[in-house]
Design a protein around this nucleic acid. Structure first.
Lengths: 262, 262
DNA sequence: CAAAATTGTCTCTTACAAGAGACGCATGTA
DNA sequence: TACATGCGTCTCTTGTAAGAGACAATTTTG
């Protein structure tokens, strides 16, 4: 009703409601910093999260005082602070699976020379929780914390195993089904893939995210039937059938070691 | 004026003001979880941070939705979530000193067999940012993220080097000067220690936190004169003068490698 | 099995934080 | 020297979120 306001943003993204709750703004700020991966000026931050400048200053001050954010070297940029690191370590400490999974991933990439990753669902999205680069000249780099649409990945298919159709549909938007190269997956095919992956206990995808790699993934269970994470190897797409099979065997063994009550 | 309120808490701690800001409550929740180091029920959490139950439920829900917290296995306990881990890794990635310092500390403890730590100031408090246990039978365990009064430690003396008296007084409360065994340090002595540590470029304390250990610490600089962190070794109090000197030499070399523009 | 304590949800009020905007102070640039 | 742009702080208003408390549903205790 009150769109006679200042902003002429027409049909802006998602109506960044006026009078947003402070906590939500903070959550947006954190997400924004996670996305930019670098220190940023407070003014830009305000723009970035589409928040009033004055509010942003206030919130940032609180967060800096609390140690969740820190002023970066220059003096007027902010980025994540030590407190978040400490909380993050607390999370690792309280989470056997993550702790051991990280080690296992590091092992795997050293052992096989391939890029290895530990992946989990993070608020409905596929997330690379830890990755260790392989030794190949052209290594496939994928930063920790990167979030990718579930249908693009082998791990995504495993992580959704056990969910019913409705739950899957809820987690996958239409955009997610469009691959980087423009091809569009059919939802039914994706759901069929998931079912198949759940039965076979592993998943291989070729040339989905890019044309040069294959992704081999296996599930890690936190309880019988409950897929808590996946471990995967990212290998060149022309890796032989034989080596692929060997690597999957290796992965399955390691994942079994990680799983609880599997 | 309006103390005719419900609570009969007489002269309670620090007048937990009514109508606390949501963000502050959240910060308290995070600190509380960091202190308890385990998943906790929402009701208990509310008690723990002295917040109304209804408010706590609302905030926890927001935080869980955002992924900063997660419901723990049972179903009605909360603890830190994956998001915090991811943000923490972002912090590490953006912070050369921390990244390299962690590696160095791991090396040192393997090399020397002693417990090794990386310490920093964290909102005015001494914080063990990373530690690696030694190989001794009775290992001195000190958890990452532990916060200890500055005067209790060798690192504390180095971290405050370069600050003037007023700044030091502001960071050290009266309680901080009381050692675990009940002895009380004199503020002037502490300040003198700091000055000395700043000049000599290292600091050794014996039997301060406990009666059985010595702490050897050296500064790590982020800019000439600016102490950003310390590395320290925690060794048995009866370690020979000679070995102590050797270890300090080793520490100084490694710290120099970490320092920037030192 | 009743009494007491806990859990999760909901409603309603009002104290107060989010936000608009003005200021003064730096820079940068025409 | 003017003019624009960005930063950090402050003030004031009003929409709204924090909080009290009631409720039903468990769970615990005696």
């Amino acid at each position: 009703m009150q769109d006679g306001s200042a902003l002429a943003v027409s049909a802006d993204e998602k109506t960044t409601a006026s009078r947003e709750k402070g906590l939500n703004r903070v959550l947006e700020i954190l997400e924004f910093l996670h996305a930019t991966q670098r220190a940023i000026g407070i003014g830009d931050l305000a723009k970035g999260v589409n928040a009033p400048r004055s509010t942003t200053y206030t919130l940032v001050r609180s967060l800096v005082d609390a140690g969740l954010l820190e002023m970066a070297g220059d003096g007027n940029r902010v980025y994540f602070g030590k407190k978040l690191y400490l909380y993050g370590m607390d999370y690792v400490r309280g989470n056997d699976l993550l702790r051991r999974g990280r080690q296992e991933v590091d092992h795997l990439s050293r052992e096989t020379g391939e890029t290895s990753e530990l992946c989990m669902l993070q608020s409905g999205r596929y997330t690379i929780v830890h990755s260790s680069p392989g030794t190949r000249p052209f290594r496939i780099s994928s930063a920790t914390g990167l979030q990718i649409p579930l249908p693009w990945t082998a791990s995504g298919r495993l992580l959704l195993a056990g969910l019913d159709r409705a739950a899957i549909e809820a987690m996958v938007s239409d955009d997610d089904l469009v691959l980087p190269d423009g091809r569009k997956l059919r939802l039914d095919d994706f759901i069929a893939d998931i079912a198949k992956a759940g039965v076979t206990g592993y998943c291989v995808t070729s040339g989905l995210v890019d044309a040069y790699t294959k992704c081999l993934a296996v599930p890690v269970f936190s309880a019988p039937g409950k897929v808590e994470a996946t471990m995967c190897l990212v290998v060149p797409i022309d890796t032989s059938e034989e080596r692929t099979a060997d690597l999957i065997g290796l992965l399955r063994g390691r994942a079994a070691g990680l799983s609880i009550g599997g």
